[in-house]
Nucleic acid binder design. Structure first.
Lengths: 242, 242
DNA sequence: GAATGAAATTATGTCTGACATAATGTTTAC
DNA sequence: GTAAACATTATGTCAGACATAATTTCATTC
């Protein structure tokens, strides 16, 4: 049995300047030291317990909070992955929004300009590599869609690839949060096709426009996509009210 | 086809059909049922464990997350108090922003499409009353500006009036949060004119366009305003880096 | 050899119990 | 009446156990 190091936090003499005493800072330090980037997997919780010297529930509380902020995504069995940049100097910003039924529509209304601008910037700035990824994601999306499977994860990955190409993680974070809120309210009823299904075929020409650098066309298609979703959302909102 | 697994949650006889199965919803229901308002104390964790039927660590993860979003404040020994309104229909959304110098620019980049879209919608939908208010705010802003006083509060009121005319409070909330973050990082140095000073004269024609219902012109002027701010911000970012 | 499928492994989700510690409440001493 | 001492309360932290979803490993089959 390994000599259980007695309490690392209390003794002031062993306190090194670079040993953070709260979980978020310790985690950030680990992420920086390890050079973890967006998409990478964090060590499993039990390893974090061992390496950071905090209890599992304490670490979990931080990870759960980060998840709610869109910094990491967690999946039972799979692990925890970084989904946004995080660094020593990170501001946290919180919104609480009360919503009625029509707020479903309000969220799309806000998402609209963000998504369009993100596409414009991505079309301008994407590297060849990023364009390749966007192309692949679009192909994947169409394939899944035509196979009649659940296309939402693929749709998510496609848009995420576009957001990444903007070089501004704020776009993705805000849109992501809006969508998360949206789905928190609106669950697809069984038997009903998923919201936005009709927009999927538009994603192929959208990807083409982005890759070709045709900013206006990409923006126009994005606007069409979101407008279709807005119309559907409007129907839902009316259902909710009726 | 996969038969939904039978409920395995505890609380045998007290299980009602509308009992939420996740902690946030259960908590919100309790808060609503109890009629708790901002400033009130929540029941202690162990009582929540008893009444909600979840384990303590699970409940704590939610409370910690809420704390990070500013919904509750927690103090060892004292308890947990509500610090913001929360109801069944309250969205919780948290963002993180790393504030290196360029993040100032990123924030403006995100604000840009939001502000433009808000102006477009406001131009379309504003009631005569709201147009009158916007006009008055613009006049006030120009007056304060020409008097050489601090125009920022007036500028704030003007934009707020525009946001209100959209009928979608989300615009204002998100933009507000972005600006708050921005000013949290960037404090105007003494002796330097405030960021965006040069844009103030543009606000008069902007208000005129909104009142006249000229959506494209209003959007164009807004774009010019934000672009000017972006350029200034870029200068600041470079200063920070150099 | 590739595809399939079952079993083992991994990693998060949840619950319980225990103790530490800060804040608050209550009693006692003067 | 006030202040110190004690008891209570409530959150903070850690540890162990088991459940369950996702992944990986490996044997079977074609």
């Amino acid at each position: 049995m390994p000599e259980k190091a007695p309490r690392k936090k209390l003794s002031p003499d062993t306190q090194h300047a670079d040993e953070p005493q709260d979980v978020p800072h310790a985690l950030i330090k680990l992420i920086e030291d390890e050079g973890l980037k967006v998409g990478d997997r964090l060590p499993p919780e039990l390893e974090l317990v061992r390496r950071l010297g905090f209890g599992r529930s304490t670490i979990r509380e931080t990870l759960k909070t980060w998840e709610s902020m869109g910094v990491v995504s967690r999946n039972k069995g799979a692990g925890t992955r970084l989904t946004a940049e995080i660094a020593r100097n990170t501001l946290r910003m919180a919104l609480t929004i009360t919503h009625e039924a029509e707020s479903l529509l309000r969220m799309q209304q806000v998402r609209r300009p963000l998504e369009i601008e993100a596409v414009r910037i991505a079309t301008r700035l994407a590297t060849p590599d990023q364009r390749r990824i966007i192309n692949a994601r679009a192909a994947e999306l169409i394939a899944v869609y035509e196979a009649g499977e659940d296309w939402r994860p693929a749709d998510h990955r496609f848009h995420k690839a576009v957001h990444e190409a903007t070089g501004n993680s704020l776009f993705e974070q805000i849109i992501e949060q809006i969508l998360k809120c949206f789905h928190g309210i609106y669950e697809t009823p069984f038997g009903k096709p998923h919201l936005g299904q009709a927009t999927i075929p538009l994603h192929r020409p959208l990807a083409d426009a982005i890759i070709a650098g045709d900013e206006d066309k990409a923006a126009e298609i994005t606007a069409r996509i979101i407008d279709m979703v807005c119309e559907e959302t409007q129907g839902i909102a009316e259902e909710h009210n009726g």
